[in-house]
Amino acid sequence: VTTYKLVINGKTLKGETTTKAVDAETAEKAFKQYANDNGVDGVWTYDDATKTFTVTEMV
């Protein structure tokens, strides 16, 4: 189990959260659900070296 981080660069919501998951795919599903629940829709990137997902909403 690995800890993954999500950085949110939203128009109205900004911040970070973490989740523990067995792999990046599982973490991504959890983060996308979290973003969807919070009304964040944007471009996703993932950095495997730092285990960090970033979602950026276009203005």
Rank of each mutant, 00 (worst) to 15 (best):
V1M: 10
V1D: 14
T2H: 07
T2L: 12
T2Y: 11
T3E: 09
K5A: 04
K5N: 07
K5P: 00
L6S: 01
L6W: 02
V7C: 04
I8H: 03
I8Q: 02
I8L: 10
N9P: 03
N9E: 09
N9A: 12
G10D: 04
K11Q: 14
K11N: 13
T12A: 12
T12W: 08
L13E: 13
L13T: 04
K14C: 05
K14V: 09
E16Q: 04
E16I: 03
T17C: 08
T17Y: 14
T18I: 10
T18Y: 14
T19L: 07
T19R: 07
K20Y: 13
A21N: 03
A21Y: 04
V22T: 07
D23N: 10
D23K: 05
D23F: 04
D23V: 04
A24G: 06
A24E: 07
A24M: 11
E25T: 09
E25K: 07
E25V: 09
E25R: 11
T26S: 10
A27Y: 00
A27Q: 01
E28T: 10
E28S: 14
E28N: 08
K29V: 09
A30T: 10
A30G: 11
F31T: 00
K32P: 00
K32F: 08
Q33F: 07
Q33I: 12
Q33G: 09
Y34K: 03
N36V: 10
N36R: 10
D37Q: 08
D37W: 06
D37A: 08
D37H: 09
N38I: 06
N38H: 12
G39L: 13
G39H: 12
V40Q: 03
G42V: 01
G42M: 02
G42D: 01
V43Q: 08
V43S: 08
V43F: 14
W44P: 00
W44D: 00
T45C: 04
T45N: 10
T45Q: 12
T45S: 11
Y46L: 02
Y46G: 00
D47P: 00
D47Q: 05
D47H: 06
D48E: 14
D48I: 15
D48C: 04
A49Q: 11
A49H: 12
A49R: 08
A49N: 09
T50I: 11
K51A: 07
T52L: 06
T52P: 00
F53D: 00
F53S: 00
T54Q: 06
T54A: 05
V55H: 01
V55I: 06
T56G: 03
T56V: 15
T56N: 13
E57L: 03
E57T: 03
M58Y: 15
M58P: 12
M58C: 03
M58W: 10
M58D: 11
M58K: 10
V59D: 12
V59H: 08
